[in-house]
Design a protein around this nucleic acid. Sequence first.
DNA 1: CGCATCTTTGAGGCGAATCAATCTAAGTGG
DNA 2: CCACTTAGATTGATTCGCCTCAAAGATGCG
Lengths: 221, 221
Amino acid sequence: MLIRTRTVSRPAIDGQLAALAGERVCCSEFTYRRGTEVFGEGEEAEYVYQIVSGAIRTYKLLCDGRRQINSFHLPGDLFGLENGAVHRFTAEAVVQTRVRITSRRHLLDSIEHEEEGRASLLTLVTRNLQHAENHMLLLGRKRSVEKVAAFLLEMDRRQDHPYVMSLPMSRRDIADYLGLTLETVSRALSTLRDDHMLRFDGQTQRKLVLLDRKGLAQLDA
Amino acid sequence: MLIRTRTVSRPAIDGQLAALAGERVCCSEFTYRRGTEVFGEGEEAEYVYQIVSGAIRTYKLLCDGRRQINSFHLPGDLFGLENGAVHRFTAEAVVQTRVRITSRRHLLDSIEHEEEGRASLLTLVTRNLQHAENHMLLLGRKRSVEKVAAFLLEMDRRQDHPYVMSLPMSRRDIADYLGLTLETVSRALSTLRDDHMLRFDGQTQRKLVLLDRKGLAQLDA
DNA sequence: CGCATCTTTGAGGCGAATCAATCTAAGTGG
DNA sequence: CCACTTAGATTGATTCGCCTCAAAGATGCG
């Protein structure tokens, strides 16, 4: 099912994978077309992934199809590493996405033998937990505009505050991340635009410029 | 500020604390009156706690007072162990609560020297993450009755399916856990009672009997 | 017993969802 | 290159679920 271009040479490893496993891990690379599933909820967690380019969404579904996106993963991010043997959610490519893949077993073995590797694994899980805790506050207690403002600031921060921010995900994805509908997200963005907090860049609606980060931060509550 | 009754002898350690630290950790015990703060968001994470009896809520606040409860901790549960040096939320006693306390440093030192201790720490953080992931789905995508049903099933499971379930927390606490108002929680409980999913036990509204766990599970979606 | 707190229930309002139409951008094929 | 198609985004009208406000009832503590 999973076609992979095996990289025989040991590629340069950067970011979190490096921190986790030093230089020992041999990686393959693979490109997923947009909308493709990387792994499904309940599947065996055989591989660990790091994004080279593109974006990944991880989510859970209710039986009637309602979807909650846990997180978006951007270039450099590690994902799919579970403590248990099974994935607790589904991962899909938001856009065409290039990932570096290594076997979970391989990575864990490397980690076992490195003092700092193990600490990094804990740090990684802790970071995910911290994000989840903040996101629970958002989902449970923030209003729609506050949610959207928080989302924009999160993306802005994670993309290192570029002048033009490029969102790889659709309004529906944003909505499912924030516990809203796509229409509400669209309305909130329009409101923020009318209030001169941001403006859309050029024709596309997925490139935008944050004009007032302070104002957005205040809205975020 | 924190009055503690130091236990000189090494008390019997059970549950997760034991799994984490073996028999090495020396604990004190302390009782918090209901509503008392155990530690605050941003405070230094000096101690680690395990509940002997009672219940603890951990939460975050927005600037205008809106509250999101991350989790309730029940007897046997460990809480307050951070990977970083600082607590990421506030912990308060829901009712009069007896806790076993040990220093974070002390516990971490013990863990350092035990292979399985370290694994347990990771397991603990992972369990918290898993709970958070499920709770995000609940907060973002479930309706009020589904939320309340899920809450009841969670408490039922964690109390080992007693015939009469005793809830230590108020309707407001439940509401702040589920991202609702206390009135909505009350209405949902009344609805479930009218639908013969549960009944209240005796006079008090905090003791209830689950009459149809299957029905509740179906509602939970 | 009396008072404060918690819970239930009702009435009405509001914010976000739903339903629906239009508009835009990006492909697709002639 | 342009008509045609399709997916995505915006905007409007309306509905609905939950919140807010309010009052009364129940519980528990001093």
